[in-house]
């Protein structure tokens, strides 16, 4: 793999926290400039006004993941066409925290926002896997009480394996549970609670997918990209 491919490989790991999709899929990476051991990543967002906190999270993650390449000595992150470009670019490139980059306006760091959206991503991915299992003929009750051990024994094809891998990636970061489909707090749901919980999951997943469509549409308009270039697979409900 050449250096540019290696950089893109790392950028595949950077997600828009709100949409739970990689920046590379969303077409947010404008370009990369590699000079010896220095990498500059130029990225763009659907509007000039996109929330600076999400933009900062993405910029931080770009820096973090690209820095993991052992030949990289310096990462410069450059967000273009944005109302907070200066603060974000200088802040992240110099390894400063969010609160230091925005001074009085920030009033704290981004950990809470990150956590909120980690949980939304957990919900979204959990819902997709549950839906897949329902389609395979598992009953809601079986799914509700399924243990991790049992989940790992379920024979899945490529699509199912991918959904499982993506789900467990998020589950791993939350309190441990013996059960495969607990709440984000790791608790087993009761039979009475489960239907309402599933509706909540669906609403969250739907909202993320809708926002994804929304953001893609705006990015296409803003940068005159061909429509639906990388349209995501629309999930049927």
């Amino acid at each position: 793999m050449n250096k540019e491919q290696q950089v893109y490989e790392m950028l595949n790991k950077v997600y828009d926290p709100e949409l739970d999709q990689p920046l590379t899929d969303l077409d947010f990476i404008d370009r990369t400039v590699i000079t010896n051991d220095e990498v500059e990543v130029v990225f763009r967002l659907p509007t000039y006004w996109c929330s600076p906190n999400f933009a900062f999270i993405m910029a931080e993650d770009i820096r973090k993941y690209v820095s993991e390449l052992n030949w990289v000595k310096k990462v410069k992150v450059r967000l273009i066409d944005h109302c907070a470009s200066d603060e974000i670019n200088q802040g992240v490139t110099n390894g400063r925290k969010f609160s230091d980059s925005f001074g009085n306006e920030a009033g704290g760091n981004l950990e809470e926002v990150r956590k909120t959206f980690e949980i939304k991503a957990f919900y979204g991915r959990q819902e997709k896997l549950i839906k897949h299992l329902l389609e395979l003929g598992f009953s809601k009750e079986t799914i509700r009480t399924l243990t991790m051990e049992e989940l790992n024994k379920v024979e899945l094809l490529e699509e199912g394996l991918d959904l499982k891998r993506r789900y467990l990636e998020k589950k791993m970061k939350l309190p441990e549970s013996l059960y495969a489909f607990p709440t984000p707090e790791g608790e087993l749901l009761t039979q009475e609670e489960f239907d309402a919980y599933l509706l909540n999951l669906k609403r969250t997943r739907l909202s993320m997918e809708f926002n994804g469509q929304y953001c893609r549409g705006l990015l296409e308009a803003r940068y005159q990209l061909p429509s639906n270039k990388k349209s995501v697979k629309v999930q049927s409900l």
Binding site: N53, E105, G107, L110, T116
Partner: peptide, 12 residues
């Protein structure tokens, strides 16, 4: 809309 303050919270 995209209220950007307080920046550290979910503005929406």
């Amino acid at each position: 809309g995209p209220t950007v303050r307080p920046l550290n919270r979910d503005a929406f």
